[in-house]
Simulated scan of single mutants.
Amino acid sequence: MPKVNFRLDGTLYAALTRRARGANLSLSGFIRQLLEQAVDERKRYVFSSQDEILATSIQILSIVATSVGQQSPKALEQGMAQARAILAERGLLGGEDAL
């Protein structure tokens, strides 16, 4: 198997490392999948095997959040703050108020 070496700036390296950790992949495995996506003629999303699980999880969490919010707005607020912190730690928020 051919080997490729290249340099990254610190910010990009940190972001890729967080995203790889969030996807439960090694950095090399994550970058390999990104490169596969870049050359895929059908332009499909490489991580599509997890899309169904993600969609189902979002639906379930939305139902739970609605229920918790109706019963205890303060508990919902605390849960959302925790979710923001976890997502930020993994580099999965687009901005400060993405959630």
Score class of each variant (00 low, 15 high):
Q37F: 05
A23M: 13
L35H: 08
G29V: 03
I63M: 14
E52F: 04
Y45E: 11
T66L: 05
E41K: 03
I31N: 14
A23P: 00
A20D: 08
R42M: 01
T66H: 02
L54Q: 08
T66E: 05
L34A: 09
K43P: 00
G22R: 01
Q59C: 08
L35W: 11
S62D: 10
L54C: 04
N24H: 11
Q33A: 11
T56L: 09
A20W: 01
F47P: 01
R44M: 08
L34C: 13
N24R: 15
N24M: 09
D51Q: 13
S49C: 02
R21C: 03
N24L: 03
Q59D: 13
E52L: 06
R32E: 15
E41Q: 04
F47R: 06
Q33G: 13
Q37L: 04
V46N: 11
L35G: 06
A23K: 09
R21W: 07
R21H: 12
Q37D: 13
S26G: 15
I58P: 00
S48Q: 12
G29W: 08
Q37S: 09
L61A: 05
R42D: 10
A23R: 14
L35A: 15
A65H: 03
Q59L: 11
L34I: 04
V46Y: 11
S49V: 01
S48D: 12
G22V: 00
E36T: 05
G22T: 01
E36S: 14
G22K: 02
Q59W: 04
S49K: 01
A55F: 13
A20T: 00
A65P: 00
A55E: 14
V39A: 12
S57E: 11
R42P: 00
A38S: 12
S28H: 14
A65M: 03
I63A: 13
K43D: 13
V46K: 08
E52Q: 04
F30W: 15
Y45I: 07
R42C: 01
S48V: 01
I63R: 13
E41F: 00
Q50E: 09
E41I: 00
L34W: 07
N24A: 12
R42H: 06
I31T: 14
D51R: 08
L25A: 06
S57W: 07
E36F: 09
S57F: 08
S28I: 10
V64L: 15
R42S: 05
I63P: 00
I63T: 05
V39C: 05
I58G: 02
A20H: 02
F30Q: 10
S62N: 11
S62L: 03
K43M: 09
V46G: 10
S62I: 00
S26I: 05
G29F: 15
E41G: 05
R21E: 15
R44T: 12
V64E: 15
R42Q: 11
Q50C: 01
K43S: 11
E52D: 08
G22D: 03
A65G: 01
S62T: 07
S57K: 02
A23H: 13
G22F: 04
R42E: 09
V39S: 07
